[in-house]
Simulated assay, not measured.
Amino acid sequence: MPGYFNYKQAMAYINIKSKTTFSKYLANGLPTIKVGNSKRIAKSDIDKFMAEHRVVAPQDK
């Protein structure tokens, strides 16, 4: 598995099919690396972002 993903690979890694939904992740702080016209996202940044946004659902009693 690569250390850096293009947007399509990043979407597949976190199982998102909608570009609109992915744009919301970016707007909420998912870090992007940009060099020239190339944009990449580090796998470690995705893992950290997802962990920081983890919400535990309340348990039904």
Rank of each mutant, 00 (worst) to 15 (best):
1 M>S: 12
2 P>E: 14
3 G>K: 14
3 G>L: 14
4 Y>L: 13
5 F>V: 10
5 F>M: 09
7 Y>Q: 07
8 K>P: 00
9 Q>E: 15
9 Q>I: 06
9 Q>T: 05
11 M>P: 05
12 A>G: 03
13 Y>Q: 01
14 I>S: 00
14 I>F: 06
15 N>W: 00
15 N>S: 13
17 K>I: 04
19 K>M: 10
19 K>L: 09
19 K>C: 07
19 K>Y: 12
19 K>R: 14
20 T>M: 09
21 T>V: 10
22 F>D: 00
23 S>F: 09
24 K>Y: 05
25 Y>C: 06
29 G>Q: 07
31 P>H: 08
32 T>L: 15
33 I>N: 11
33 I>D: 14
34 K>C: 09
34 K>S: 14
34 K>Q: 15
34 K>Y: 01
34 K>H: 04
35 V>Q: 12
38 S>K: 15
38 S>V: 15
39 K>V: 11
39 K>Q: 14
39 K>P: 01
40 R>L: 13
40 R>G: 03
40 R>C: 05
40 R>D: 08
41 I>K: 00
43 K>D: 02
43 K>R: 15
45 D>M: 03
46 I>G: 04
47 D>H: 02
47 D>S: 05
47 D>W: 06
47 D>L: 09
47 D>V: 10
48 K>P: 00
49 F>D: 08
50 M>G: 01
50 M>T: 02
51 A>R: 04
53 H>W: 06
54 R>W: 10
54 R>Y: 10
55 V>K: 08
56 V>L: 08
57 A>Q: 13
59 Q>A: 11
59 Q>Y: 15
59 Q>G: 02
60 D>I: 14
60 D>H: 14
60 D>A: 14
61 K>Q: 12
